[in-house]
Design a binder for these strands. Structure first.
Lengths: 230, 230
DNA sequence: GCAAAAGTGTTAACTTTACACCCATGT
DNA sequence: ACATGGGTGTAAAGTTAACACTTTTGC
């Protein structure tokens, strides 16, 4: 980066808390570090911001490199800058969190380049490098808060999904059970789900209707002041 | 700062959006720049993060230097890092927003050290240096969102205040009118205001009762899952 | 025919909104 | 005595929460 004037300097990194969801619950993508410091420890995917790159661009690039996923929900979370958070020197990290559709199998493929990568259930994470545990905790809190008033849950589901899948996702993220009838009533009342003519298949019980989230309609309503809530 | 390894370097600054409130409405503290770039333009108070200082410490130091205020509400907002946002080189800024009690006159005194400083009504800000307009806009949106579910409005009022003052503050921040009876009912129902035995004075109408916010009680309730809301 | 999850309405409790007049004080 | 803002209650509308049985499918 250009640093043509005398002021203290630091390195700037981005770290991404990448959430995915499958039948087993919420997971986060971790990378096993191949080099010191914290060699062999698990860490959040991330890396240094390059000279001519914005922070968002850096986060998106890291995400693409680590997961192969290109169109994911990505949002800046918080910036961590304790002087001693990295033993190599002063490193300020801008943390992001991302939501990816684990159902897009592309996501997992690219993660096995050289380093080990794994989707870990958020309930039993290993010890993490640097202050990454703290970063993860912030991200989870943010996700739990945001899911209640922004329709970001859909970013974790396949393009079409059943109402029960959607409800289970909310129950997982919010860590509480929801009433089936009330949940359906409320979510359908928003009229933001498009009922497809397709049904679940290969299930050994009554097949559920598949729905799609109506992004266009949401954008339109949102700009008119509509507020998605729970 | 220590930078003992080969990676791109940047300078890191903190910039603070300092809100205050008086009879005229919401104001923000601006500083007139004495040096290039943007010499003579108005800017948010801020400065470089020092070698052994965390981001929060840097923000608090800047705030103290610019306003003299020490115990203010301070929260990290967002980090801005477009490669060209500062013509001097790569400068990543971690933005904070702060709420100060303008009624504590100490606040204004210290602002007149060498540079011009002014509390400007948020409705008619001058053109700002760098990307500070964008930073201000983010801060205002955050304040408007947060004031609805966290009792931060009290940080802008004197220690004791009337219910009408509180209501006016909310009306100013949220940019809409509120019903007097409903507002009082709701805020008193939370039982977070302590009714003092003191009344307003020197007013040419019936004197209003003064209240204090019960910070202790709020902390206690909050940790039990209580949610302050509007 | 049984196990498993899908789908469907009603009622009571609670919350929110709308609304108007008398009271205390200073000039 | 008047102007100014302080202080107070109720009812209707809307929202949330609690709750149980029938349907469809695969095995």
């Amino acid at each position: 980066m250009r640093t043509p004037f005398r002021q203290p300097q630091a390195s700037v990194t981005v770290d991404c808390v990448v959430f995915g969801s499958d039948e087993e619950g919420l997971k986060v993508l971790l990378i096993e570090r191949g080099v010191a410091p914290f060699k062999g420890a698990w860490a959040l995917p991330g890396g240094f911001v390059r000279e001519n790159e914005s922070l968002d661009e850096a986060a998106r690039r890291e995400l693409r490199e680590e997961t192969g996923a290109t169109s994911v929900y990505l949002e800046q979370l918080y910036t961590f800058g304790e002087p001693l958070r990295d033993p190599r020197g002063r490193v300020v990290t801008v943390a992001y969190y991302a939501l990816v559709k684990l159902s897009d199998h592309r996501v997992l493929q690219a993660t096995t380049d050289a380093r080990a990568a794994a989707w870990m259930p958020i309930g039993k994470l290993p010890r993490l490098a640097f202050d990454h545990r703290q970063i993860f905790d912030s991200a989870l809190r943010r996700l739990q808060a945001k899911v209640r008033y922004q329709p970001i849950g859909f970013e974790l589901l396949p393009r079409t999904f059943t109402l029960s899948q959607l409800q289970r996702l909310y129950e997982t993220v919010l860590e509480r059970t929801l009433d089936k009838r009330n949940f359906r009533k409320k979510i359908l009342a928003m009229a933001l789900l498009i009922e497809t003519d397709r049904m679940e298949r290969f299930v050994s019980h009554r097949a559920a209707r598949l729905y799609r989230f109506d992004q266009r309609k949401y954008k339109a309503l949102e700009s008119k002041g509509f507020n998605f809530e729970l």
